[in-house]
């Protein structure tokens, strides 16, 4: 435990140091301009103090971001429009809805691809093509189209999340469902097993390790999808909306705290999947 902790702490401290250093460099021109207008000369410690405490810095410091996050998480009612929990929940609900839809779609497509040669040949190229289209170009169209057929709010964002998250699930599950070797398939044949029995008893259990890898990728992609979905829609709530309004008004601290909230959210969700994975692997005797 200690051995793995030391490098992690070292690297984290190194990053924080660099961050503070860059805050000085990037925010100093504003501080120097301000001092010049007031005919002041800044000592180095005064300069540092100013660059680390501006209201709209180019690069806010870790403690500014940390304080903003603390304030908007614990000091605001969670129903407040200024609460990070409120915005986080909006994004999280779209992420989870999109993730579930994407997982479902991905698994169904993988099942069809593995069991049907025609589907494999006809659908797989489209699946790959779907991921070459920049999601930023597609997201506004999805929102316009879905709102015109009556879907607003969570649903369009969930669809964008699904669009991004089904891909790793399909790719991983196709590989997983095909992972049984020739001997295992032959063995099933000697017992005259049906395709369905082969699926349930052999292919699905064998695809579990692939599924978990895919789920982690899919979850991260879902969150990106939900945030991207909040950008073009003029959404007023969600972490993406928080970032966008922050950039309109030059509220860099707000952007960074939304950014960190998203990163923490993603890490927790992926961590949760890892926990479930460890439990399932232990039950199934799969070495990690």
């Amino acid at each position: 435990m200690n051995k793995s902790l030391i490098p992690i702490v070292t690297i984290s401290m190194f990053i924080v140091l660099i961050w503070y250093a860059f805050s000085i460099v990037l925010n100093s021109s504003w501080a120097l301009d301000k001092a010049e207008r007031n005919n002041q000369k800044l000592s180095f410690s005064e300069l540092v103090h100013d660059t680390w405490s501006q209201k709209k810095p180019k690069l806010p410091t870790p403690h500014q971001v940390g304080y903003e996050m603390w304030k908007t998480t614990f000091d605001k009612k969670i129903t407040s429009k200024r609460s990070l929990v409120y915005h986080g929940w909006i994004t999280l609900s779209a992420t989870l809805a999109g993730f579930m839809l994407g997982t479902l779609l991905g698994v169904l497509l993988a099942l069809a691809i593995v069991h049907d040669k025609a589907t494999d040949l006809s659908v797989m190229p489209w699946i790959i093509t779907s991921q070459t289209i920049p999601i930023l170009a597609l997201a506004p169209m999805i929102i316009v189209v879905s709102s015109s057929i009556g879907f607003t709010g969570l649903m369009p964002k969930a669809i964008i999340s699904m669009y991004l998250s089904f891909f790793p699930i399909v790719v991983g599950m196709v590989k997983g469902l095909r992972s049984p070797d020739l001997l295992e398939i032959d063995q099933m044949k000697t017992w005259s097993a049906s395709q369905f029995q082969i699926l349930i008893k052999l292919r699905l259990p064998k695809s579990i390790p692939f599924l978990f890898t895919s789920l982690k990728l899919g979850m991260a992609a879902s969150l990106v999808g939900a945030i991207v979905g909040e950008l073009p829609s003029g959404a007023i709530a969600g972490l993406g909306a928080r970032m966008l309004s922050g950039s309109y008004y030059g509220q860099t601290i707000q952007i960074w705290s939304a950014l960190f909230a998203a990163a923490i959210l993603a890490a927790s969700l992926v961590g949760l999947i890892s926990l479930i994975q460890a439990f399932v692997f232990k039950r199934m005797m799969i070495a990690q």
């Binding site: 063995q187 000697t190 005797m285």
Partner: peptide, 19 residues
């Protein structure tokens, strides 16, 4: 014969499912 389960087949490797 296969469909009436007339034979048991033992392969080179045991092919046991680890789970």
């Amino acid at each position: 014969a296969r469909e009436s389960r007339a034979y048991g087949y033992v392969f080179q490797s045991a092919g046991l499912y680890p789970w």
